[in-house]
Amino acid sequence: MTVILEARDLVKRYPVGDGEVEALSGVSLAVERGEFLAIMGASGSGKSTLLHLLGGLDRPSTGEVVIDGVDISTLNDEQATLTRRDKTGFVFQFFNLIPLLSVRENVALPFLIGGGSAGEHAERVNQLLDMVGLTGKADNAPDQLSAGEQQRVALARALATEPALLLADEPTGNLDYTTGGEILDLLWHSCVQLGQTIVLVTHEARAAAYADRVLVVRDGAILDEIALGRRPDHDPGQLLARLATLGL
């Protein structure tokens, strides 16, 4: 299997007052094409910082991030942005949609940013809307959707350009249990059916249990790596047991 994402000795430091705090200290990982990786950790563990570095939203203090053969850690802002446009899709916990755009236009946003129009990619957009079950609400405004529906639109948008990598930062954090489960099912479906590579950041074992592999992060370093394998039942039991041995 091809390695689609690789991080080598990532360090991220932030200035705090007169000194610095090290949010990540020498993290290395590799993700294969089509793999579903979860990064777990408590609040402040550095998991979101790691995700931002992997997605090119931030630059490491030291270390490298290579996505689909491109080292993004040395790119300037313009280059990083274009790489992000081509190779990544994001789903965030909050405020995912552009309120000024309709559902259809939000899904087509990556195409719009690339200079195209919603009409030119109508077939792909409709396909995505169908995949997330929102064909009937294509022309609705975001504020006319429930939180779960909004997150489904965000997922469809993230998949629009068939990116090399889909990064999801606590996508179920703002949703109820059932709706969250629907989103996780969609993520898993896109990975299994469409071969999408996914990196999911979460603090919930239930969500991490969807992944093929889980990296546990604590205090800016990888504490453990737990291989779960591809399991349609997503039972978190094995994961919870392992976390318990780690004292989490």
Binding site: D77, T81, I98
Partner: peptide
């Protein structure tokens, strides 16, 4: 935040 979303999705500065 919308600007952040646009930038995250690949809109340049």
């Amino acid at each position: 935040r919308e600007i952040g979303l646009l930038r995250a999705a690949g809109a340049t500065a």
